[in-house]
C-alpha cells in the first residue's frame, strides 16, 4: 500500500459518500444519471466476486463491502425511494453501447480465460467508461450542481491517483497490470475536460455550466 493508492481509495470512498449524502439530504437525485450508478453497481459486483474466494486483508474486504453496499443503496435511492425526482428524460445514454463492447473485449483481451478473470476484466473495462451517461447528462442539461461536481471530481481523481500508484509499484515491485493501466488511462482521459471545468469554474465559486 502506497500513498497514491490509499488516497485513491479514500477519494473513491469520498465520491460515493458525497453522492449518497447529496441524494439523502436534498431528498432528490436530480441531475444524477441512474444509468451510471447501475453500471457502477455492476462494476463492483463483477469485480469483487473474489470476496468469497480469497481473503487479502481486513482493509481490502471492508472497502469492497462498503463500495458494493453504497452502490446498491444509491441505485435504490434513485430508482425507488426518490424515483419521482429522477430526471429520466435527460438520462438517455444508450448503455448497451458501453456494456456490449466492454463485455466482448473482456472475452478477447484478458489475463486468463476463466469466468472470474473475465468478469474482473469486464469490470475494469466497464468502469473506465461507466461515467459517460453522467457526463452525457451534464452536457445535455448544460450544468451540474456544485455538489455533483465535487462528486465527479473525487471520482475522477481516484483513478488518476491509481495511475501514480501503478508507476510507483512498477518502480518498487516490478508489478504492472497492463489491462488495469490502459483502462485507467482511458478512464482518466474521459475526465480531463471535466477537470478543466472544475478547476476553472467550480473551485472559483461558480456553478458548473456549459456554454449554450
Amino acid at each position: 500500500m502506497n500513498i497514491f493508492r490509499f488516497l485513491g481509495d479514500i477519494s473513491h470512498l469520498l465520491a460515493i459518500i458525497i453522492l449518497l449524502m447529496k441524494i439523502w439530504k436534498t431528498r432528490s437525485c436530480a441531475g444524477i444519471s441512474g444509468k451510471s450508478q447501475i453500471l457502477f453497481a455492476v462494476v463492483f459486483t463483477t469485480r469483487y466476486l473474489d470476496l468469497v474466494t480469497n481473503f487479502i486483508s481486513f482493509y481490502n474486504t471492508s472497502m469492497k463491502v462498503v463500495y458494493i453496499a453504497c452502490s446498491y443503496a444509491t441505485v435504490w435511492l434513485i430508482y425507488s425511494k426518490f424515483k419521482a425526482t429522477y430526471d429520466g428524460n435527460h438520462d438517455t445514454f444508450r448503455v448497451e453501447f458501453l456494456v456490449v463492447p466492454t463485455a466482448v473485449l473482456a472475452f478477447l483481451v484478458n489475463h486468463d480465460f476463466t469466468p472470474l478473470e473475465i468478469l474482473w476484466t469486464f469490470s475494469i473495462y466497464l468502469e473506465s467508461v461507466a461515467i459517460l451517461p453522467q457526463l452525457f447528462m451534464v452536457s445535455k442539461t448544460g450544468e451540474a450542481e456544485t455538489i455533483t461536481s465535487h462528486y465527479l471530481f473525487a471520482l475522477g481523481i481516484y483513478r488518476t491517483l491509481y495511475l501514480f500508484n501503478w508507476i510507483w509499484r512498477y518502480q518498487q515491485e516490478g508489478f504492472f497490470d497492463l489491462i488495469a493501466i490502459v483502462a485507467g488511462l482511458v478512464q482518466t482521459i474521459l475526465y480531463c475536460d471535466f477537470f478543466y471545468l472544475y478547476i476553472t469554474k467550480v473551485l472559483k465559486g461558480k456553478k458548473l455550466s456549459l456554454p449554450a
Binding site: I56, H111, W120, Y162, G174, F175, D177, A180
Partner: peptide, 10 residues
C-alpha cells in the same frame, strides 16, 4: 516481465 494481477487492489 509480464505479471498477472494479484488482485490486491480495489
Amino acid at each position: 516481465h509480464y505479471l498477472v494481477t494479484t488482485k490486491d487492489e480495489l
